[in-house]
Design a protein around this nucleic acid. Sequence first.
DNA 1: CGCGTTTGACCCGCGC
DNA 2: GCGCGGGTCAAACGCG
Length: 404
Amino acid sequence: MEKKIEEDHHQHQQQKEQLNSTKNTDKKIDQQEQQISQASSSSPHMANLVTSSDYHLHQLELAGNNNINLSSIFDTPTSLPFPYSYFDDNSSNNPNSFLDLLRQDQHQFASSSNSSSFSFDAFPLQNNNMFFTDLPLPQPVTTRAESSEVVNTAPTSPNSTSVSSSSNEAAANDNNTNKEVTVKDREEGDQQEHKGTKPQLKAKKKNPKKAREARFAFLTKSDIDNLDDGYRWRKYGQKAVKNSPYPRSYYRCTTVGCGVKKRVERSSDDPSIVMTTYEGQHSHPFPMTPRGHIGMLTSPILDHGATTASSSSFSIPQPRYLLPQHQQQPYNSMYNTSLNIINRSSSDGTFINPGSSSFPGFGYDHMPQASTSVIRDHGLLQDILPSQIREDTIKSQTNEEDKK
DNA sequence: CGCGTTTGACCCGCGC
DNA sequence: GCGCGGGTCAAACGCG
């Protein structure tokens, strides 16, 4: 994987050089990207992020100071973002993946629906409607959201930590092409339904202004491009990203009738950051395919520590609180203010509620009940977090409360 | 053999 | 109108 990445990097670096030397028009975009990248790499700590609220800022600070501070990342003591039981049981020192985390999350949701909030926290940025989410970061990472898409951060793999900022891809497009992207996405959705023929493609153009799918961008610090989120994805395209040595990969959910797509690309400025953008909502529970599995329960990551690029990849968790604030369900009201919407429609600049299972990657509402039995769940923090993390979390929580 | 990836061609919208 | 860039298609290929 790394080798491949390096190759790609080299290849695209050449392209990049060519582009830089020949195209002036690229500069604008490049600058935009750099803004994003700089935002994500220049400051070592999330604390430097521009956030829309003091609370968020506070969280960021905690994250930055402690590096791995779940409490700073997650909302409440009881709202464990990521159940880390997997780590305890299988790879205590190997916080494998974001996937695992996500999976855990889902378990948690499955077992304790409203009682706990989701793991990710989103931080809407004032100016650009971007969202950030913090996750435990082995390394301090900073990101800045500049697109209309939701961004999230998540630790993804042993070597990975995640940071999230706005989707670069989204960010790169946002200022200038946000509108365009929106339209295109909409068309893409149509394409999926009518995919295949040129006449069909033309037909889709007849409804150019259909509402586009909600999109969510996550920034994840990881050496792994594709993080296993339990869903099965089929890669249907790859494109070189302008001014980036890394290509952008396009994935589609393999489940029949599910039009969820995601794009994965690596930040050119910080190759350790993977930007994943999800589009659409899964119309199904976690896949149970012939050779598949219930993704959350049997992630390859658990076995290998990393997923292959193919079948499964990172996808966005669908935290319930990732809803428009006005639509959020009243849980954990105490911290609810910090739970900002991650989901947003970039087409009109407003947040939308994709539904109870809004995030493309996580249909919590559809979670198989069986999943809850897999993980110990006493409804306690200890059920979810490894002791060390719990300690950190408790500390940070305490600090947080002290500050209040 | 089925499924997923690769990759060049193609489509489309936008900016100049 | 043209070129560019993002996104998708689909045949070829690889892998288990």
